[in-house]
Simulated assay, not measured.
Amino acid sequence: MSDSVDLQGAAALLDAAATVTVLCHVNPDADTLGSGLALGLVLERRGVAVQVAFGSPAAVPESMRSLPGGHLVVPAADVRRDADLVVTVDCGTAGRLGSLRDRLDGAPRTLVIDHHLSNTRFGTHNLIEPESEATAVVLANLFDVWGVEIDADLAHCLYAGLVTDTGSFRWGRPDAHRLAERLLATGIDGSAITRTLLDTHPFGWLPMLSSVLASATLAPEAADGRGLVYAFVRRADAADLGPEEVESVIDIVRTTAEAEVAAVFKEVGPQQWTVSLRAKTAVDVSAVAAELGGGGHRFAAGYTAHGDPDHIVAALRDVLG
Rank of each mutant, 00 (worst) to 15 (best):
E260W: 10
E181V: 06
G190K: 01
D318P: 08
I128Q: 00
A214D: 15
I252Q: 14
V48W: 00
P68Y: 03
D284T: 12
S2E: 10
V268E: 15
T110S: 15
S63F: 10
L33Y: 02
L198R: 08
G172L: 03
A77C: 04
M208H: 06
V261R: 03
F265M: 08
V319W: 04
D105F: 02
G269Q: 06
A239W: 06
L37T: 05
L320S: 11
R109C: 02
T217V: 15
N126V: 11
A282T: 12
L228E: 06
P174S: 07
Q272P: 01
E221I: 03
A290H: 13
D224N: 13
Q8A: 14
V319G: 10
T135W: 02
L97G: 00
A10Q: 06
D310F: 08
T88S: 09
V5K: 07
G293T: 11
A236T: 13
S211D: 12
T88F: 00
V89E: 02
T196R: 13
A315E: 15
D237P: 11
E260H: 13
A136F: 04
G147N: 12
K280Q: 10
H115D: 08
L67M: 11
A59R: 06
A279H: 05
H125M: 12
A282W: 00
D102M: 00
G47K: 07
L33I: 03
T186I: 02
V89C: 09
R46K: 13
L183Q: 00
E267G: 08
V22F: 00
H71Y: 13
T93C: 05
D318I: 11
W205Y: 13
D251A: 01
R81Y: 04
K280F: 12
F232M: 04
F54P: 07
A11H: 03
W171K: 05
V283D: 13
L14M: 06
V148W: 07
A152V: 14
G225V: 14
L197Q: 03
L85W: 00
I113L: 14
D251T: 11
D105I: 02
G225C: 14
A155K: 05
P174T: 01
I193Q: 06
G161Y: 05
P270W: 07
I128T: 02
P28H: 06
V137T: 15
D199V: 03
V137I: 12
V87R: 00
L197A: 03
P220S: 06
A301E: 04
L41R: 05
A53F: 01
A77Q: 09
T32K: 02
Q51V: 08
Q8V: 09
G269E: 12
A136D: 11
E260F: 14
E247H: 01
A300G: 13
I188W: 00
T164F: 03
V212H: 11
S210L: 01
F232Q: 07
R195T: 13
A58N: 11
G269C: 14
V50F: 09
R298Q: 15
G296F: 09
G98C: 04
D29I: 01
G95N: 10
V42N: 01
C157F: 06
A257F: 14
V288M: 07
A107D: 00
H115Y: 03
F203C: 03
R298N: 14
G9A: 08
L104I: 08
F299N: 15
R80F: 01
E258F: 10
V148G: 12
C24M: 05
P309C: 04
R173L: 14
A219H: 10
T110A: 05
A94V: 01
Q271I: 07
T274A: 10
T186R: 00
R234N: 06
L183W: 02
